[in-house]
Simulated scan of single mutants.
Amino acid sequence: MDPLDFRLINEFQRNFPLDPAPFAGIARCLDTGEETVLTALRRLHAAGIVSRVGAVFAPRRLGASTLAAMIVPARRLEEIAASISARPEVNHNYEREHRYNLWFVVNARDETQLAGVLAAIERDTGCRVISLPLEHEFYIDLGFDLAGARKVPHAGRRIEATDLHTLTAAEHRLMGVLQHGIELVPQPFARLGAQAGMDEQAVIATLEHWRRDGLLKRFGIVVRHHELGYTANAMVVWDLPDAEANRAGSLLAAAPEVTLCYKRRRHLPQWPYNLFCMIHGRDRNVVERAVEDLRRRLDLERYPHAVLFSRLRFKQRGARYVAGATTHE
């Protein structure tokens, strides 16, 4: 990766300019030209390093979502994974090293639709689904610092039913064209407005409102870890008393090696774990050493835990909240 690419994707995963010509503003920061920035982003997107440029929304602020898992026979894994990935409500789908070997995220407009999607997956595959909805986020920034040392301060929050944001008709139209990412053109917000039936300034004002409200976690470049060379991806889970999970979650969230950290509802007796974190590394040994160091440093050695490395990525894209829009991912 050349210096321009590095700065581009490291500095603009957040704090993306919400103004009529954002790529020209980025170019000025990088002491280069607007077309150079756009060409670099198009190339990085084509290479799979950049997933999209756009919005990352706070979990469970729009509709309903859950992390789900299944025990899938090895001979049927590819078939079942393909059928799950084909569902528009599923945005992530991974094989992981565990008895529960297929893990996927489902987003739906409400809890009723979510339950229906999970029931349909069980019916169509013949495999039991466990659902592990988010209860408390300790660190879900969804950015990735390539320098490996900087972490954006992040206040954890317990997920409440009152967190839900009801979209207005105009917001719904904008969400439909925005959720796939902005187009890599000089005036992307004008293009969004033309597609959503809004003027450019109304688009920018809506995005600024969403950011102030916390609906937007961030707006900017969304990268894929694997294509950046972080090929060892482990989900680490602990079984802790709830009060201790809150303490440990706050400590894990502050650790530089942890890229995500949250508490999820147990699914007893099949799944006793309630505290989750993600660690990405360039090789497996780095991640394993990080896990052991965290267990020792944060006094977690006495609690049951499991480390689930990813094996195959079947699907990875941004969540869809509105059906029927054209994709730019």
Rank of each mutant, 00 (worst) to 15 (best):
D5Y: 09
A115H: 06
R76K: 13
R109G: 01
A155L: 04
H98Y: 09
A120P: 00
L240G: 01
D141Q: 12
I80S: 01
S85K: 15
E137A: 03
L251D: 11
F16I: 02
E301C: 13
K217C: 06
V222N: 07
T125W: 03
L192I: 13
L4C: 11
G156Y: 00
Q201C: 07
D242E: 13
R123T: 12
H328R: 12
K151R: 14
G324Y: 10
G220S: 04
T162D: 07
V105C: 04
I9V: 15
E97Q: 14
I221S: 01
R311V: 14
H226S: 10
G126H: 05
P241S: 05
A46N: 13
R173Y: 10
L275F: 01
V129M: 04
Y94C: 08
A81M: 09
F309P: 03
H305T: 11
E35I: 12
R109C: 03
T162K: 10
Y273W: 05
A74V: 14
R282C: 11
F309G: 03
L268G: 05
T66A: 12
C261H: 00
L114C: 01
R99Q: 09
A40N: 08
R295N: 07
A325H: 13
G197C: 09
H165K: 10
R296A: 14
I279L: 13
P241N: 02
F104P: 00
F219N: 08
R43P: 04
E171T: 15
W271I: 07
H226P: 01
E111S: 08
V223L: 10
L215Q: 03
D124V: 07
H136I: 10
F23I: 09
E227K: 13
E301L: 13
L268Y: 09
P17Q: 14
V106Y: 01
L178R: 08
N107A: 08
P88T: 07
H45G: 12
A69F: 10
C277N: 14
T206G: 03
D110S: 02
E35M: 09
V236H: 07
T168P: 05
T162F: 02
S250E: 15
R218T: 06
V258E: 05
R302A: 14
G54D: 06
L118R: 09
L167C: 08
L300W: 12
R52S: 11
E160G: 00
E288T: 15
P3I: 14
E160R: 11
E79L: 12
A108I: 03
S310I: 11
L240K: 02
G214P: 02
V185N: 04
A108M: 03
R99D: 08
A319P: 02
A47E: 15
H225I: 08
Y94L: 13
A86W: 07
E35R: 13
I159Y: 00
L294M: 14
